[in-house]
Simulated assay, not measured.
Amino acid sequence: MFRVPTLCLCLLASLAIADESSSKPARLTVAQKNGWATYDAELKKKEDAVNKACGSSVKSSYDRSTYPAFDPMKDRTQSACQMAVGTLVEVCGTADGKAAVKETVKKTVCRLSTEGTKVSLDGSVMTIYIDPENTSITGKQPGSYSWKSAYEEVL
């Protein structure tokens, strides 16, 4: 017969093992790895164009943790992210826009969102929220936004 302390230790050990296994990320398939590689390569092209136009050193990435069931054959947010990052080139079309991007934005991060398509700036990180179900870009004021107008509002 089990003693209570032994039983408790066994339960705690099994809970710890279960907790460790649930915190490990799922193994990516070859299709997913190739999909992310393509996404990253295309985003790098937009990043390079922004840095050339703005005289900046912005780094861009996807927040992969927000893509829990990423399927490169079904996901269509990559083009929205690339378009959003690429729009920074337009912002740099004016001296004030160029200065704002160069001085403020060090990193852009695209996140899959379920709470709307929008942008936020936290320190030097510009987070671009892409909601495939709600593609209208929102800002601080009611109405329709473009990426450019949303950026100019936070910069």
Rank of each mutant, 00 (worst) to 15 (best):
I17T: 11
K24R: 14
E103P: 15
E103D: 15
S21T: 09
V58I: 11
D40M: 03
A69V: 12
A99D: 13
C81K: 03
M83D: 14
S56K: 06
K52Q: 12
P72M: 00
K46T: 09
Y62H: 08
K24I: 02
Q82N: 14
C10W: 14
A41Q: 13
V30R: 07
L88A: 01
T94F: 05
D48W: 04
D96Y: 09
E42S: 12
D71Q: 06
K102V: 03
T29K: 05
T38A: 08
E90L: 06
L7V: 10
S21E: 12
D19P: 05
A37P: 15
K102F: 03
G86I: 00
A31E: 13
S56F: 09
T87F: 03
P25R: 02
A31P: 15
G93V: 06
E103Y: 10
T87Y: 07
N34W: 09
N34A: 06
D63M: 01
M83T: 14
Q32L: 03
G35F: 02
F70L: 04
L28K: 15
A84L: 02
P68G: 05
A100C: 10
D75W: 07
E20G: 03
D40K: 13
P68K: 08
T38F: 07
Y62F: 14
L9W: 15
A84G: 06
L88Y: 09
F70K: 03
A18V: 08
F70M: 02
V85P: 01
C54W: 05
A41W: 10
A95L: 08
R76N: 10
E47K: 00
S21V: 07
L43F: 11
D96K: 12
R76P: 03
K45P: 15
S21Y: 11
M83W: 13
E47H: 04
Q82K: 09
T66D: 07
I17N: 02
D63K: 07
V91R: 03
S14Q: 12
D19T: 05
A18H: 09
C81L: 01
S14A: 13
E20Y: 08
A95I: 08
S57A: 11
A16E: 06
K52A: 13
K44R: 12
D19I: 01
A95D: 15
K33S: 10
A99Q: 13
S60W: 01
E90K: 15
C10R: 11
N51W: 09
S61E: 09
T77S: 08
Q82E: 13
W36E: 01
R64I: 02
T38S: 11
A80M: 10
R27Y: 06
Y39S: 02
L9I: 08
D96R: 09
D63E: 12
T38M: 02
K98H: 06
A100L: 01
S65Q: 14
